[in-house]
Amino acid sequence: NQASVVANQLIPINTALTLVAMRSEVVTPVGIPAEDIPRLVSMQVNRAVPLGTTLMPDMVKGYA
């Protein structure tokens, strides 16, 4: 099972992602792969992401 990126805190809309804001977890459905965490740092989310939410490619500006 592949680990996905999960919000480690509430991430407000247009907030730049940080290492502290993300964690890796095996979840269903699978979201952005955990190995992409370094690439996600400083990218912005295009919606509010609640704690525990799996990050999907369409939630991160410039990711997809």
Rank of each mutant, 00 (worst) to 15 (best):
1 N>L: 15
1 N>F: 12
1 N>D: 15
1 N>A: 15
2 Q>E: 12
2 Q>K: 11
3 A>P: 12
3 A>V: 07
3 A>T: 07
3 A>K: 09
4 S>A: 03
4 S>R: 03
5 V>L: 02
5 V>C: 06
5 V>E: 02
5 V>Q: 00
5 V>F: 04
5 V>Y: 03
5 V>M: 02
6 V>N: 03
6 V>Q: 03
6 V>K: 00
6 V>I: 11
6 V>H: 00
6 V>P: 01
6 V>W: 04
6 V>E: 01
7 A>G: 01
7 A>Q: 02
7 A>M: 06
7 A>L: 05
8 N>C: 09
8 N>E: 05
8 N>L: 05
8 N>A: 14
8 N>R: 08
9 Q>V: 13
9 Q>R: 14
9 Q>M: 14
9 Q>F: 15
9 Q>C: 11
9 Q>A: 13
10 L>D: 15
10 L>E: 14
10 L>C: 15
10 L>G: 09
10 L>M: 13
11 I>P: 02
11 I>M: 05
11 I>Y: 02
11 I>N: 01
11 I>R: 01
11 I>A: 02
12 P>G: 07
12 P>C: 07
13 I>C: 12
13 I>F: 11
13 I>W: 09
13 I>H: 09
13 I>P: 12
13 I>T: 12
14 N>C: 10
14 N>A: 07
14 N>I: 05
14 N>T: 04
14 N>Q: 06
14 N>H: 13
14 N>E: 07
14 N>M: 10
15 T>I: 06
15 T>Q: 10
15 T>L: 05
15 T>V: 09
16 A>Y: 15
16 A>F: 15
16 A>C: 12
16 A>M: 13
16 A>L: 12
16 A>D: 07
17 L>V: 00
17 L>N: 00
17 L>F: 01
17 L>R: 00
17 L>D: 00
17 L>A: 00
17 L>C: 05
18 T>C: 06
18 T>W: 04
18 T>M: 07
18 T>P: 01
18 T>N: 06
18 T>D: 06
19 L>W: 14
20 V>G: 13
20 V>T: 15
20 V>A: 15
20 V>D: 12
20 V>H: 14
20 V>Y: 15
21 A>R: 09
21 A>C: 11
21 A>M: 15
22 M>E: 01
22 M>P: 01
22 M>V: 06
22 M>C: 05
22 M>A: 00
22 M>R: 00
23 R>F: 05
23 R>A: 06
23 R>H: 03
24 S>N: 05
24 S>W: 09
24 S>K: 13
24 S>E: 09
25 E>T: 07
25 E>I: 06
25 E>C: 09
25 E>L: 10
25 E>V: 08
26 V>N: 09
26 V>I: 13
27 V>H: 01
27 V>C: 07
27 V>Y: 03
27 V>W: 04
27 V>F: 03
27 V>R: 12
27 V>L: 04
27 V>M: 05
28 T>F: 13
28 T>M: 11
28 T>G: 05
28 T>C: 11
28 T>N: 13
28 T>A: 14
28 T>W: 10
29 P>H: 04
29 P>F: 05
29 P>C: 05
29 P>M: 04
29 P>E: 05
30 V>K: 11
30 V>W: 12
30 V>C: 14
30 V>H: 13
30 V>T: 11
30 V>S: 13
31 G>D: 00
31 G>R: 01
31 G>E: 01
32 I>T: 01
32 I>P: 01
33 P>H: 10
33 P>Y: 07
33 P>N: 07
33 P>F: 09
33 P>V: 06
34 A>T: 05
34 A>Y: 06
34 A>W: 06
34 A>G: 07
34 A>K: 05
34 A>Q: 04
35 E>G: 12
35 E>W: 11
35 E>K: 11
35 E>N: 10
35 E>D: 13
36 D>Y: 14
36 D>M: 11
36 D>A: 12
36 D>I: 07
36 D>V: 08
36 D>L: 11
37 I>M: 13
37 I>W: 02
37 I>P: 01
37 I>D: 03
37 I>V: 04
38 P>T: 09
38 P>R: 09
39 R>H: 10
39 R>E: 07
39 R>A: 08
39 R>M: 14
39 R>P: 00
39 R>K: 14
39 R>S: 09
40 L>Q: 00
40 L>M: 04
40 L>H: 00
40 L>T: 00
40 L>I: 12
40 L>R: 00
41 V>K: 03
41 V>P: 00
41 V>Q: 05
41 V>H: 01
41 V>A: 04
42 S>V: 04
42 S>W: 09
42 S>D: 10
42 S>F: 09
42 S>L: 09
43 M>A: 06
43 M>K: 08
43 M>G: 00
43 M>W: 06
44 Q>P: 07
44 Q>N: 09
44 Q>G: 05
44 Q>F: 15
44 Q>C: 11
45 V>H: 02
45 V>W: 00
45 V>A: 05
46 N>R: 10
46 N>A: 13
46 N>P: 02
46 N>L: 15
46 N>K: 09
47 R>N: 05
47 R>Y: 07
47 R>Q: 12
47 R>L: 07
47 R>E: 08
48 A>Y: 10
48 A>G: 08
48 A>I: 13
48 A>W: 12
48 A>Q: 14
49 V>D: 04
49 V>P: 05
49 V>G: 03
50 P>K: 09
50 P>R: 10
50 P>F: 11
50 P>Q: 09
50 P>L: 10
51 L>G: 12
51 L>T: 15
51 L>K: 14
51 L>S: 14
51 L>E: 14
52 G>V: 02
52 G>Q: 03
52 G>I: 02
52 G>A: 04
53 T>D: 09
53 T>W: 15
53 T>P: 01
53 T>M: 14
53 T>C: 11
53 T>H: 12
54 T>Q: 01
54 T>D: 02
54 T>N: 01
55 L>R: 03
55 L>M: 07
55 L>S: 03
56 M>A: 05
56 M>Q: 12
56 M>W: 04
57 P>V: 06
57 P>W: 14
57 P>L: 04
57 P>D: 05
58 D>H: 12
58 D>K: 07
58 D>S: 11
58 D>P: 06
58 D>Y: 14
58 D>G: 10
58 D>W: 15
59 M>D: 09
59 M>F: 10
59 M>R: 01
59 M>I: 04
60 V>G: 01
60 V>Q: 01
60 V>E: 03
60 V>Y: 01
60 V>F: 03
61 K>N: 10
61 K>S: 10
61 K>Y: 13
61 K>R: 15
62 G>W: 08
62 G>N: 13
62 G>H: 08
62 G>R: 06
62 G>D: 10
62 G>S: 08
62 G>K: 07
63 Y>F: 08
63 Y>A: 02
63 Y>S: 05
63 Y>I: 03
63 Y>M: 04
64 A>E: 10
64 A>N: 14
64 A>W: 08
